[in-house]
């Protein structure tokens, strides 16, 4: 894990470009899929929080999966959902305390952020750099 996905709500304008980028980056059946990131009103004036998967260390979604369909990608650090393994029990959707495992009704499947395999598209498109994918500094890496 050499990179970290950083969210900085202070500069988020709630433009929802990330949502669009995500939907287009995860198409289904030739159409944009369900976005895995949502800028949500932070409850204060001009404060938006892009909510997406935190890729928790001790993730509730991973623990809740009885068929081991959720596994961490050792390279990107993302918890990835193996759709072929998923049995659609909705345990992860219910278990995630951040609400970031999602049901995509359009394709009748559970989806979650996979960091686009190591190059999150949302970060590319974020006009204010509220989302960024940055290298982890050496000292951080040792500490973490």
């Amino acid at each position: 894990m050499n990179f970290r996905f950083v969210v900085n709500p202070e500069v988020c304008t709630g433009c929802r470009t990330c949502e669009l980028a995500c939907a287009f980056a995860h198409p289904h059946d030739g159409k944009p899929g369900k976005s895995r990131i949502y800028p949500i009103d932070g409850g204060f004036k001009e404060l938006w929080v892009p909510v997406t998967c935190l890729q928790c260390d001790d993730a509730a979604c991973v623990k809740s999966c009885l068929v081991d369909a959720l596994k961490r990608n050792p390279v990107t650090g993302a918890i990835e959902l193996n759709r072929e393994m998923c049995v659609m029990c909705m345990a992860c959707v219910a278990a995630c305390p951040f609400g970031c495992a999602l049901l995509d009704p359009g394709q009748d499947a559970v989806v979650k952020c996979d960091l686009c395999g190591g190059d999150p598209v949302c970060a590319h498109f974020c006009p204010t750099k509220a989302l960024s994918y940055v290298p982890i500094e050496k000292k951080d890496r040792i500490a973490g």
């Binding site: 709500p9 202070e10 949502y38 949500i40 009103d41 932070g42 409850g43 204060f44 404060l47 938006w48 929080v49 909510v51 509730a60 623990k63 809740s64 959707v93 219910a94 278990a95 995630c96 305390p97 951040f98 609400g99 970031c100 495992a101 999602l102 049901l103």
Partner: peptide, 30 residues
Amino acid sequence: RDIPIAYFEVCDDCHRKETAKTMGRVVNWT
């Protein structure tokens, strides 16, 4: 699986809203 039962008492939509609110408070505080 050792998951707090409270996690299951809120739906994913409201969980996301809660997350935004919590982070919003932190950001606002800073």
